[in-house]
């Protein structure tokens, strides 16, 4: 609506002594994978109700640094702008979070001299603030994060479930694969491979997958094991997921730092899931030993 375009300062901008006319944004840029990173400073005109996405939109439109240098627009990843898609995760003022829900007024309250943006550090940088999070999705494949239904023909409804079951499952299912829990995890180390000369894209992917599979799966995937193994039908194939959970890169790599649960934007009870997974893995290992 035209009218909404002209709205003015309100609500959370009240209370400020004086709204700044402009503010500076420091961005850690990188032109491509494996290249050196560098800082760049941009100046943005203040508007009420801005978030980091609208700041990046202004920066893309002006493409000029504080000292008047013409530069390429900063690259970043985003989609829904409602904090449900998980795309726009980055380090805003040093904290891993979604750029869309990082509101400028609050950021300037925290740090009046400007805003600092960096790409996530646990994933390879593609360009500027864009990182490659394929490893995160690979972990979901490794733990077989799906209900192995017979097929998509008509077979009646799913099993009845108690409200308690639903209320436990629902928050776990809100995980949007944003990667915050991995960024904050001391045990989750960056894996960055580069294609070798003459290596086909497919061969590279195979080699990369194998490396991912040996590396820590992280809190999000552990929590998904709990989600699927608690489902009445998922339970039937629980062992397959538990096997992935105790394989190299599994639950044993968790150092229990508990950073994950603090940074999760969806407030998923990740440490509860990790506790559950630790017990389930122990039981599974003992059972396997007896079944030998």
């Amino acid at each position: 609506m035209t009218q909404t375009a002209t709205h003015s300062a309100h609500e959370h901008t009240n209370g400020h002594a004086a709204e700044p006319r402009t503010f500076d944004v420091r961005i850690l840029r990188q032109d491509g994978p494996g290249e050196a990173s560098y800082w760049e400073r941009h100046r943005v005109a203040y508007e009420p109700d801005m978030n980091v996405i609208s700041v990046l939109q202004r920066i893309a439109a002006q493409s000029e640094t504080v000292d008047g240098r013409q530069v390429t627009p900063v690259a970043w990843d985003c989609n829904c702008l409602e904090e449900v898609c998980g795309a726009c995760t980055m380090l805003v003022n040093g904290r891993t979070r979604q750029a869309c829900s990082a509101l400028v007024d609050r950021l300037l309250d925290e740090q009046p001299d400007g805003i600092e943006l960096r790409p996530m550090s646990k994933f390879p940088v593609v360009r500027d603030l864009v990182v490659n999070r394929r490893r995160l999705f690979r972990a979901l494949e490794k733990i077989r994060a799906w209900i192995p239904v017979d097929g998509y023909y008509e077979l009646g409804p799913g099993p009845r479930q108690s409200t308690d079951q639903q209320r436990t499952a629902y928050p776990l299912s809100e995980c949007m694969s944003c990667g915050c829990c991995l960024e904050a995890c001391p045990q989750y180390q960056k894996v960055e491979l580069r294609p070798r000369d003459g290596e086909t894209a497919e061969d590279f992917k195979t080699r990369e997958d194998a490396t991912f599979d040996r590396s820590f799966i992280g809190a999000h995937a552990i929590s998904q094991v709990r989600y699927f193994n608690s489902n009445p039908v998922g339970k039937m194939s629980a062992d397959v997921r538990l096997e992935a959970l105790v394989a190299p890169g599994g639950i044993q790599d968790c150092g229990n730092a508990q950073n994950c649960v603090v940074v999760c934007p969806k407030h998923i009870p990740l440490t509860t899931s990790i506790g559950w997974a630790g017990r389930a893995a122990t039981v599974y290992t003992i059972k396997k030993w007896f079944d030998k």
Binding site: W146, L155, R160, Q161, S162, T163, N231, V233
Partner: peptide, 22 residues
Amino acid sequence: PKIIDLMDRLGVPFNRTEEGFR
């Protein structure tokens, strides 16, 4: 109705009634 049933089987955590129905 068939589509809701299918999504239910695929594990969508639909809200439940006290008796366990969707």
